[in-house]
Simulated assay, not measured.
Amino acid sequence: MPSQVSIHPALNGGVKAGQANFNGGTLVCACADRPVKVKVEGTVLHNHACGCSKCWKPEGAAFSIVAVAPTDKVTVLENGDKLKVVDPSALIQRHACTGCGVHMYGPVERDHAFTGLSFVHPERFQEGGWPAPGFAAFVSSIIETGTPPSAMAGVRSKIEELGLEPYDCLNPTLMDAISTWVAKKAGTLRE
C-alpha cells in the first residue's frame, strides 16, 4: 500500500520523466502581480528532493525540489527589485521574492566546490520537461522543520516508492566532488 506522506506536490503522484532536449527556460515566482522572472539558459543538473531547513518549499511540502545551473547562465528578466537575499551569511545566497517568498535562485559565491553554480527550483519553470529529481538529500533534516522522528520510516518508504534513493547528506557523486575539492585545496590530492 502506498505511503500517504506528502513529499512535494510535484512528486507525490510519482516522479515524471524530463525531456532529453530540455534546454532551460523561465522560472516564475508565485505572485499574481508583477511576478519575478528568471531565465536559465541550458539544462539544470543534480535535480533532487531536498529536506534541508533552508530551501524554499511550497505549502504542505516536506521537501523542496532543487537543482543547479551555472550562475553565468542565470539572468533576472523581470521585477528583480522584488528580490532579497534570505540570509547573507549562508553559503547559498538564496534570492527570494519579497512578495510571495519563493526562492528564485541561489548563487554560491564563496570559495567552495559549488562556486559558480546557482541553486534553482525547477518546478517554477513555466516550461515543462525539466529533468526529473534523481535522489533525495538531507532526509533527516525534515525533523528540524517539525516532522516527528516516528514518521521517518514512512518518509523514507515514500521516497523509495517514488524511485529516489534517500540520503542524509548529498548523493555520493556530489559528496565525492566536495571531498575532491577539499583535498585539492589542502594539497592532499593532486590531479
Rank of each mutant, 00 (worst) to 15 (best):
P2N: 14
P2D: 14
S3H: 11
S3A: 13
H8M: 01
H8A: 04
A10L: 07
A10Y: 05
L11Q: 00
L11G: 01
N12V: 09
N12W: 12
G13Y: 00
G14N: 11
K16S: 14
G18Y: 09
Q19H: 13
A20Y: 02
A20L: 05
F22G: 02
F22R: 05
G25E: 02
V28L: 07
V28G: 03
V28C: 14
C29M: 04
C31H: 01
A32D: 15
A32V: 05
D33L: 09
P35A: 05
V36W: 03
K39N: 08
K39Y: 03
E41H: 12
E41L: 11
G42I: 12
V44T: 13
H46G: 00
H46D: 13
N47V: 14
H48M: 13
H48A: 14
A49M: 13
C50T: 07
G51S: 14
C52H: 07
C52K: 11
C55M: 06
W56T: 00
W56Y: 11
K57T: 09
P58A: 06
E59L: 02
E59W: 03
A61L: 10
I65E: 14
I65A: 03
V66L: 11
A69Q: 04
A69P: 06
P70W: 05
P70G: 06
P70A: 10
T71Q: 08
V74F: 06
T75E: 14
T75F: 06
V76K: 07
V76F: 05
E78M: 04
E78R: 02
E78H: 02
N79A: 09
K84N: 05
V85A: 07
V86F: 08
V86H: 13
P88S: 11
P88L: 08
P88H: 08
S89P: 01
I92K: 10
Q93F: 07
H95V: 00
C97A: 12
C100E: 09
C100F: 05
G101T: 13
V102G: 08
Y105I: 03
Y105S: 12
G106T: 07
G106A: 12
G106W: 02
R110N: 12
R110D: 14
H112R: 08
A113Q: 02
F114Q: 07
F114G: 01
T115L: 00
T115W: 00
G116F: 01
L117Q: 15
F119P: 03
F119N: 01
F119K: 06
V120K: 01
V120N: 05
V120M: 04
V120S: 04
P122K: 04
R124W: 09
Q126Y: 01
G128Q: 09
G129Y: 11
W130T: 00
W130I: 00
P131F: 06
A132D: 06
G134N: 04
G134R: 14
S140H: 06
S140R: 10
I142E: 15
I143G: 01
E144Y: 00
T145W: 03
T147Q: 15
A151H: 09
A151F: 03
G154C: 03
G154S: 12
G154N: 10
R156Q: 09
K158Y: 07
I159T: 01
E161T: 01
L162Q: 08
G163W: 05
E165K: 15
P166N: 08
D168G: 13
C169W: 10
N171I: 08
P172Q: 10
M175R: 07
A177L: 15
W181F: 15
V182E: 15
V182L: 12
T188W: 08
L189H: 08
R190L: 13
E191P: 03
